[in-house]
Design a protein around this nucleic acid. Sequence first.
DNA 1: ACATTTACCATACAAATGTATGGTATTTTT
DNA 2: AAAAATACCATACATTTGTATGGTAAATGT
Lengths: 207, 207
Amino acid sequence: MKIELTETQKNILDFLIDQIKGKGIPPTLADVAKHFGYKNRATVQQHFQAIEKKGYIRKNPKLSRGIELTLEEKFFVPKPVLGEVAAGNPLTIYPDAIDTIELPTIARMPKDSFLLRVKGDSLKDAYIFSGDIVIVNPNLEPKNGQIVAAILDDAAVVKRFYKKKNEIELVSENPEYKPIIIDKKYASFKIVGLVIGVYRSMDKKAV
Amino acid sequence: MKIELTETQKNILDFLIDQIKGKGIPPTLADVAKHFGYKNRATVQQHFQAIEKKGYIRKNPKLSRGIELTLEEKFFVPKPVLGEVAAGNPLTIYPDAIDTIELPTIARMPKDSFLLRVKGDSLKDAYIFSGDIVIVNPNLEPKNGQIVAAILDDAAVVKRFYKKKNEIELVSENPEYKPIIIDKKYASFKIVGLVIGVYRSMDKKAV
DNA sequence: ACATTTACCATACAAATGTATGGTATTTTT
DNA sequence: AAAAATACCATACATTTGTATGGTAAATGT
C-alpha cells in the first residue's frame, strides 16, 4: 500500500515523529531545516510534499505546525525501521535471549527508552503477562526495590532488583518463587534496563 | 504552592489541555479566541500571561503554539480540575460508583477515550491491579469477548463482555469467579465503555 | 538517450502568529 | 474609599510560518 520512502525522507519522517512524540508538538519547517542544516525552508517543504504524496503524513494547509501522522490511529506504531533500529540497540547483544522483540513507538515515551513485547509466561510473577509491553529504560540505574529486565543464562526475567554486598538479588513479586542470587557464578548475567512501565492492549485479545 | 485560577482562566487552561491532549498540538491565540468567542487575540494573550504567572503553563516566547503545560513531567497528569471536568463527562453520572477515579491525560490517546486509575483490588481477575490505568473508550460498541468497564449496583467491574439473547454476561478471566448475569433485575447497570488498554507505571512502586 | 525523481538552493509574498500598548468596565481585595 | 485584579476591547507591528515559483546538479528509471 504505502510507497517506500527514500533515505532522506525517512530521516525527516523520523525526526518528525521524534518531535511529535518527544516534544508533543510538530516542528515548523524552519525547525526541521535547522536540524538537518538546510539553509532553506523550502527544501523541507518539498520533502514534506513528497512524504505526504506517499501517504505517510497529512498536512493541514496554512496551519502552522499542521502536520499529522497518518500512521497512528493506534497507540503503537510498529516501527517500519525496526530491523535497523534494533541493530543500534543494547538489546541486539542478546538477540535470541528474549523470546520476541518488537519495537513499537508509544507516545510520550522517554526518548531513551524502548519497549519490549513479552512473549511467554516466564514473567508473570511480576504481573506481566504474555503480550504485554514493558517499557524499559537502559540508562537508568536501578535502585533497590525497582523492577528490572535482565538476562541470565539465556532467559529474560523481570524482577525486583536488590543490590547486596557481593551479590545481586532478583526477587519475584510472587512469594512462590525463590529469589535469584546473582554472584560470580553467573557469567552471562546482564541488566538490560529499568522497567518503568507496562502496557497491555486489549484490542486483539477478544477470542 | 500553585495559586488558584479564576473561573475563566480555568476554562482556558482546560481548553488548552484538551487541545494538547486531543489534537496533539497546542492551539494558537486565535484558536482560543475563536473558541471562546473573543473578538481579540490579545484577550487570550492576557489570560495566558495570568495563567503563566500562576505557574500552570510555560511559554516559549515568539514561538507559534509554544505553550507548554508545567503540569506534566510524567506520563499521567492527575487533573487538578477533576471535579469540574468530570462534570461534563459520561462518568459523572456515577460519581461514587468507581472506587476512586482520576482522570489523567495521556498524550496521543484516542481522542474519545479516557483513563481510569483503578484503586482497590476488585478488578484483579482481569489482570488489572490497584494503581493500574485502564484506557476506556465509551464510544466503541463492545463485542463478545472484549473487556468492558461497567457499573452495576454501585460497583465498578472490568470483565469480559458477552451478549446473549435476553441478558448480558460478564465473565471473569479468573475461573474462580462466576460469571455475572445481567438481566432486568439490574436497574443500575451500565456499560461505561470498552477497555482498550491497560497501563501501569513502575515508577513509584519501589518500596 | 531522455524523462523523472531526488535533493538541494534562492527569492518573494500573504497569512498567521505572538507581542506591545492603551483603553474601559466590573469585581475583588485591602 | 482606594488599589488591584479581572475581563474584555482595539490598533499596530515585527516575526514566524507556510507556500509558490524558478533554478541547478546528481541519481535513477525507461
